[in-house]
Design a protein around this nucleic acid. Structure first.
Length: 275
DNA sequence: AACGATCCCTGTTGGC
DNA sequence: TGCCAACAGGGATCGT
């Protein structure tokens, strides 16, 4: 499922295709896709004729400022992907034709994703305003994160998925980060030392860098694809996610799977210290 | 304030 | 073999 690396790769492709281009025609084809603040027809109206200034990313959100001050905010949800000049296919919920005859489509079978448009001074109503520091663009401040975990009793796995603390990690990379930093997913946030958090910050950097280098993670059952249609190649680089019962690459003990906050969680019971 | 549960949705999987 | 319930999960929302 798309997390920060997949969204960053998508951003780079969209930036190359969209920035500087004018949208000649925009269609929103599914009611939920624009559900945040506007009807499908209104999104089409508001975007028609607008020029794209940039394609930015914060956490798993895409932020696309336009020449008239409006901002497109988009999220891939769990099954969303963008495709450039693709043949028509099912679940295409957003379609833009550009002034250079390129077409850009948003395809999202499970409709957890969206493409919304906000006025500049209204962005506070978008999910963007609630996000903590980006796990990739900013150099994460271990002391600050340690501080924000001081009063938290929830398991660190759940806290890593909380986008207001750090933004960009999802279920796959949160497990990978905790494995790399040898922290048990059930550890209460306030039990982590500054040393733990420093390791976690380093591991985050490393896990995300490898994932981006490898074009992101494409799971068998969820066809995340790059905007050029290729599959990501990071699946075999994952140390724990989806590897229940397989030997840990560090110590050989079988990887375990538990459920934390209704999310499957994979870890090595020997390498990752119990809380 | 923080935590955990629930809901949204559909392609795929697994059990009978 | 075929059917159908269970499962997957990011983020918003709600009750405690």
């Amino acid at each position: 499922m798309p997390e920060l690396p997949e969204v960053e790769i998508t951003r780079r492709h969209l930036d190359a295709v969209l920035t500087g281009r004018r949208m000649e025609k925009v269609e929103v084809l599914h009611a939920r896709t624009s559900r945040h603040n506007t009807s499908p027809a209104e999104v089409g109206e508001r975007l028609k004729g607008r020029q794209v200034v940039a394609v930015q990313r914060h956490g798993k959100f895409l932020r696309i400022p336009l020449d008239d001050g409006q901002v497109v905010v988009a999220h891939l949800g769990m099954s969303g992907r963008w495709a450039v000049d693709a043949d028509p296919e099912p679940h295409t919920h957003f379609l833009a034709e550009l002034d250079d005859r390129t077409s850009v489509a948003f395809i999202d079978p499970r409709t957890f994703g969206f493409v919304a448009v906000y006025d500049e001074d209204d962005l506070g109503r978008s999910g963007l305003s609630r996000l903590g520091p980006d796990a990739w663009e900013t150099e994460l401040d271990a002391e600050a994160i340690h501080g924000s975990l001081q009063r938290r009793t929830a398991p660190i796995k759940a806290l890593l998925l909380d986008q207001t603390i750090i933004s960009g990690l999802g279920n796959i990379y949160a497990d990978e980060v905790l494995f790399e930093s040898k922290i048990h997913p059930m550890s209460p946030g306030r039990h982590l030392t500054i040393g733990h958090v420093t390791d976690m910050v380093k591991s985050t950097r490393q896990v995300l860098a490898i994932a981006i280098e490898n074009g992101g993670t494409t799971l068998d059952d969820l066809a995340y694809l790059l905007p050029d249609g290729r599959a990501g190649d990071n699946l075999n680089r994952l140390a724990v996610y989806g590897r229940e019962g397989e030997p840990c690459q560090e110590c050989g003990v079988p990887i375990e799977r538990i459920v934390v906050r209704a999310r499957s969680t994979h870890f090595c019971p020997r390498c990752q210290e119990r809380p």
